[in-house]
Design a protein around this nucleic acid. Sequence first.
RNA 1: GCCCAUGUAGCUCAGUCGGUAGAGCACUUCCUUGGUAAGGAAGAGGUCGUCGGUUCGAUUCCGACCGUGGGCUCCA
Length: 635
Amino acid sequence: MFRVFVSGREAQVDEGATAAQVLKGSKAVAARVDGRLVDLATALAPDSKIEPVGFDSEDGRDIYWHSASHLMAQAVKQLFPDAKVAIGPAIPEGFYYDFEVKTPFTEDDLRAIEKRMRLLSKKRISVEHKWLPRDEALRLFKDRGEDYKLEIIEGIPEKRISVYEQGDFVDLCRGPHVPDTGRIKAVKLLSVAGAYWHGDEKNRMLSRIYGIAFPDAEQLERYIENLEEAKRRDHRKLGPELDLFSFHEEAGPGLMFWHPKGATVRRMIQHYWEAEHLKAGYQLVVSPHIARSGLWHTSGHYDHFRESMYTIPTGEEEEYVLKPMNCPGHMLIYRSRVHSYRELPLRMGEWGVVYRNERSGTLHGAMRVRGITQDDAHIFCTENQVESEVQGVVELTLRMLRTFGFERFSVDLSVRDPDNTEKYMGNDEQWQVAEKALVAVLERLKLPYKRAEGEAVFYGPKIDIKLLDALGREWQCPTCQFDFNLGDRFDLLYVGEDGRHHRVYLVHRTVLGGIERFMGILVEHYGGNFPTWLAPVQARVMAVTDSQNEYAHRVFELFREGDVRVEIDSRNDKIGYKISEAERLKIPYMLVVGGREVEKQTVSLRKHREGDLGVLPIDKALKRIQEDGAVPVPR
RNA sequence: GCCCAUGUAGCUCAGUCGGUAGAGCACUUCCUUGGUAAGGAAGAGGUCGUCGGUUCGAUUCCGACCGUGGGCUCCA
């Protein structure tokens, strides 16, 4: 007998007791012993501290989904003995496993695999951990023809190799795992997709199956309901439904057409953006869409960004380039005269439309397009202004995101790929100094962030902020980037206090990112229910019968003169029908006028998703909507 | 670009084992004048994504291409 601590409480256990025994009765899928995640079958040492790890925790879900991926691999190997397993991790929502198969899986295969998984789950096959000597592990996977596992073992330096065995299936794995397959209860395989081995497009394409699993069927049902709710919020559905924007095969993929309503939302965003930026000391400029290719050689884009650029042969003159970025234009504006240190920091902003020949398979609704409107800006400053400028950008960004109601986003510190530094501009010292400045800002603002190696752009490290779409996928929107490249290439200088020329430091940034993408995110974020200040139509006047149409028109005119974006519905339909349509179109305010309102010169006000707000005099209703619909003004 | 799926009316979807198509909603007209989420009737609307092949005949079978979706890679 010795003592252990179970969730902080002391307990006496026999020699050889396992985590499973002391956690009996809990819904643990694994255990945390002295801070380390382990299998429930792990034998305990004296004085160890044991905590249950359940599906209700992130670690627990991770283990659970990882185990589900093993179960899926077991089912696949039984149904498709020729399939070779590659890797099968848990992901934030569910799991996947990659297989090499002669013919990729079909939807029908998925159903069959799912069925086999349920069968294997019912058998409650125990999942056992083993340490194998290196050569034995190599032999095991060689005998089974698992080439990918052999390759993975090659990359593991240790002498002993960790494997998990469940019945006829063995997988190379660090674990931990659930104790038996019976734990994996409610499974749904969601999709098949191609994926390159090691994520490198030079490698063979594997067949990937995505799935999700829960300890009980009700949770799975809820998950599927949530997926369907997310589909209702999808900007590709709401965009056309609310008449915001469209794409046209005839025009080409990835080119967004902003309809009057979408363009109105965009204009409101821009009004607000300009107010914030002028307040923050930005100067706004406009630059042309095309420029001689020489400019793009100077900037380095011709060498580093060529495959994304559209070029325009002109016949007699030199080739032109349709701008994929706004930077070179801003560099020219800066360089058009001598600047004193007194002018710095100089913040130059533009809603610049850029075109990029994105690979066809990467396009995605409004989120990934070929014609991108960037709310771009370049900050020209001295070395010791850089940090406060970056901080200013991040603070401006957070303030603006709050205005749009974004609470959930993730922050990345994108740095060089340490194994491949030659594809970047700038020297080691520059990168270190820049990274230090970015980290200092993130820490001063207490922003939790993730270091993302290899995510930097060729000209410098950056802070990226990612917003979530309805399905929880991340999309990079705001970004704040160091630029070691253009200052040198364009020889950008300022005259310092000492009367000498100095090189400017350059920060490149966007707050919204691409407006097309931001619009897509915004539609999904609000589920199409724009706040009144952004709503393309803020109010709709509707008469109860057509004998009030004249009065309705007068109300309509009064609101229009009061700068409310108002429509009138004078169709020959019942009021219930008109309201139903206005609700469907997500118009914030409905102004119902019937005989009683005509008599008293009032309107009956109804709010979208809230219902009847009662009868008000016209001017009161107008004032209310004007106040609710005002573009937020920065303090 | 790569893998898989998919493309029928403005939208959501039926359908034809090969003989040139149908519903609901939306639209137009008429009836109805109705008080807070869908009143009724009629009409109009489709080169069945595009181009080729097989066939007496293709929207249907085959192929290529284009678009869209889910991923991979790439990126705001």
